[in-house]
C-alpha cells in the first residue's frame, strides 16, 4: 500500500501527467474526428513525418544549418555583450555615451529590422546571423551589467588592500562575482536565439528548421510544420539542460 502511494506520488511529481494528458486528448480527438486533421494532424502523422525526415536525412541537414547559425549568432552576440558590459562597467563614461542608444535598440523588435538587414547585407548568411545576434544581445548584456554593478564593494576593497590593480580586480573579483548573472544572461540569450531562428530563416533561406517550417506551410504540410515546432522546442530545452549541467559541473551555478 505504502509502495503504491509512493509510486503515485512519484508519477505526480514527475511532471509527466500534463503532457501525457495533452497527448491522449490530441490522439483521441484526432481519431474521433473532433477537428479537421488537415488543420491539426494526429500525433502519429507528426511522428511519421519526423521518422521520414530523419530517414531521408532532410532533418539532419536542416538541423545542421540551424545549429550552425545559432552557434555563430549566439557566440558572437555573447562575446560582444559580455565584452561591452565589462567595458561599460570599467569605464562608466562609455556607458554614459552609449546607454541611451542601447536602450532605444532594446525596444526595437529584431524582426522589424529584417528589410534593412536584407538591404545592407543581402540575402546570404549575414542577415540571419545578425538577427540572432540582435535577439540574443540584450539579455546577455543586461544580466552581465547587473552582475558587474552588484559586485560587492567590500570584496573590491579587500583586493585594493592586497594590491590588486584594476585589471586584476576585474579578472579575479568582478568576473567571478558576476559569473552567475552572466550565466543567467547566456541561458536566457540561448532561449532567445532559438526563438528568433524562424524569423532569421525567413530571410531567403534554403535550409534550416525555420525554412523547413515555412516550406511546409507553402506545401500545406501541417504535419511537418508541427514536427519542426516540436524539434525546435525539444532541442532548445535539451540545450538549456546541457547548459545548466555544464554550469553546475563547473561550479558556476548551484
Amino acid at each position: 500500500m505504502e509502495k503504491a502511494k509512493k509510486t503515485v506520488l512519484k508519477v505526480f511529481s514527475s511532471g509527466l501527467i500534463f503532457p501525457a494528458a495533452v497527448l491522449l486528448l490530441w490522439h483521441y480527438g484526432a481519431a474521433g474526428g473532433l477537428w479537421n486533421t488537415f488543420l491539426l494532424p494526429s500525433p502519429e502523422t507528426v511522428w511519421k513525418a519526423f521518422c521520414s525526415a530523419l530517414g531521408n536525412g532532410e532533418l539532419q541537414l536542416h538541423l545542421y544549418a540551424s545549429l550552425s547559425r545559432i552557434a555563430a549568432g549566439f557566440g558572437i552576440s555573447a562575446l560582444l555583450a559580455v565584452t561591452l558590459a565589462f567595458l561599460c562597467g570599467a569605464f562608466p563614461s562609455i556607458y554614459a555615451q552609449i546607454g541611451g542608444t542601447l536602450e532605444f535598440l532594446r525596444h526595437v523588435p529584431p524582426m522589424a529590422t529584417i528589410p534593412m538587414l536584407i538591404l545592407w547585407f543581402g540575402i546570404g548568411e549575414s542577415p540571419k546571423i545578425i538577427l540572432i545576434i540582435l535577439a540574443t544581445f540584450f539579455p546577455v548584456f543586461l544580466n552581465t551589467m547587473h552582475g558587474i554593478k552588484n559586485c560587492d564593494a567590500g570584496l573590491l576593497e579587500v583586493a585594493s588592500v592586497f594590491g590588486y590593480n584594476r585589471w586584476e580586480k576585474c579578472r579575479h573579483v568582478i568576473l567571478p562575482s558576476a559569473l552567475p548573472s552572466i550565466m543567467t544572461g547566456l541561458q536566457l540569450g540561448l532561449g532567445y536565439s532559438w526563438r528568433s531562428l524562424v524569423a532569421a530563416e525567413l530571410v531567403a533561406a534554403s535550409s534550416g528548421l525555420g525554412y523547413m517550417i515555412l516550406d511546409a506551410e507553402q506545401l500545406s504540410r501541417s504535419d511537418v510544420v508541427l514536427m519542426g515546432i516540436f524539434v525546435i522546442g525539444v532541442l532548445g530545452a535539451l540545450l538549456d539542460m546541457l547548459f545548466v549541467i555544464i554550469s553546475r559541473a563547473a561550479g558556476i551555478i548551484r
Binding site: 570584496l155 579587500v158 592586497f162 594590491g163 590593480n165 586584476e168 579575479h172 562575482s177 559569473l179
Partner: peptide, 19 residues
C-alpha cells in the same frame, strides 16, 4: 569578506595578486 567562490585555502592565497 571572503571571496565566496574560493575555498578557505584559496582565500588565503588571494592575499597575493597572481603576479
Amino acid at each position: 569578506r571572503l571571496m565566496p567562490w574560493l575555498s578557505a585555502l584559496e582565500n588565503i592565497i588571494f592575499a597575493f595578486p597572481p603576479r
